[in-house]
């Protein structure tokens, strides 16, 4: 898990998106997004609702199929080939806004099912890894509870542990804190910051600009299905070039 000491394995981008386009019926949701993500890089995506940021992140593990352009994840191009897609999904952990924990399974089962069924791990190994992850996200004592018995913040930390249990090469976060009460946001962000510092490749949709300042390598501002502006946190926070980015940042930073 501790990849911090290991040298970066490769300088090739782990995610390559070229001119990705997506329609919902007549609605043009993604109008040509291009992005390259290096291993261990932390990308933060933000923008108004309906700007296509969520759709974009979901095309990376093909929860949404893109209709033109090219997406290459970990050397595999996303096409209609089903086998590739499941391999890609095993390498890409995803954390959802609404947690999406499986309510009929305990916390332990939530975390261990995917590695046992999809990585073919033995139960004892899966449970050992799960326990380590639960300790890492700070709730080892909740292992035998059901999701409904946990607070929102705890549920989201279980969801992060569940995704990490597959030992993915990269993590996608789709607004992980926006369904949480304010006092729970910090506990989830702390876990994510720790994860970023450990060298995980991450794409995070969030409006938590404190988080972005702390760990993001690059920021992307989405609007109307396009990347309006991108750059380092310094560049975007201090010298935004586009009028729309300025306005939006002014709005979210004023809080």
């Amino acid at each position: 898990m501790n990849r911090n000491s290991a040298p970066a394995r490769t300088e090739d981008p782990i995610i390559i998106c070229r001119d990705v386009q997506k329609w919902f019926g007549k609605y043009h949701a993604l109008k040509g997004i291009s992005m390259e993500v290096m291993p261990q890089e932390v990308i933060v995506i933000f923008g108004p609702s309906g700007s296509g940021k969520s759709t974009f992140i979901r095309t990376i593990n093909r929860l949404e199929a893109h209709q033109s352009g090219q997406i290459i994840v970990d050397g595999i191009e996303l096409t209609h080939d089903v086998r590739n897609i499941e391999r890609v999904r095993m390498e890409t952990g995803m954390v959802f806004q609404q947690f999406n924990l499986f309510p009929h399974l305990t916390v332990m089962q939530n975390i261990t099912y995917a590695p046992m069924y999809n990585r073919k791990w033995h139960r004892s190994k899966a449970e050992k890894v799960a326990m380590e992850l639960l300790e890492r996200v700070g709730i080892p004592e909740q292992a035998e509870k059901y999701p409904a018995q946990l607070s929102g913040g705890q549920q989201q930390r279980v969801a992060i542990a569940r995704a990490l249990a597959m030992q993915p090469k990269m993590m996608l976060f789709d607004e992980p804190t926006s369904a949480l009460d304010p006092e729970m946001i910090k506990e989830v962000l702390d876990v994510m910051i720790e994860l970023a510092q450990s060298g995980m490749t991450m794409i995070v949709i969030t409006h938590e600009m404190g988080f972005a300042r702390a760990v993001a390598d690059r920021l992307f501002f989405f609007d109307e299905g396009l990347v309006v502006e991108s750059g380092t946190p310094d560049e975007l926070f201090n010298f935004p070039k586009e009028e729309r980015s300025k306005q939006f940042l002014a709005q979210i930073l004023s809080h």
Partner: peptide, 15 residues
């Protein structure tokens, strides 16, 4: 069954 359940399972690589 919530849509998110299917999505989360797919994201974890279940067949």
């Amino acid at each position: 069954v919530d849509r998110g359940q299917r999505e989360a399972a797919r994201a974890l690589g279940f067949s």
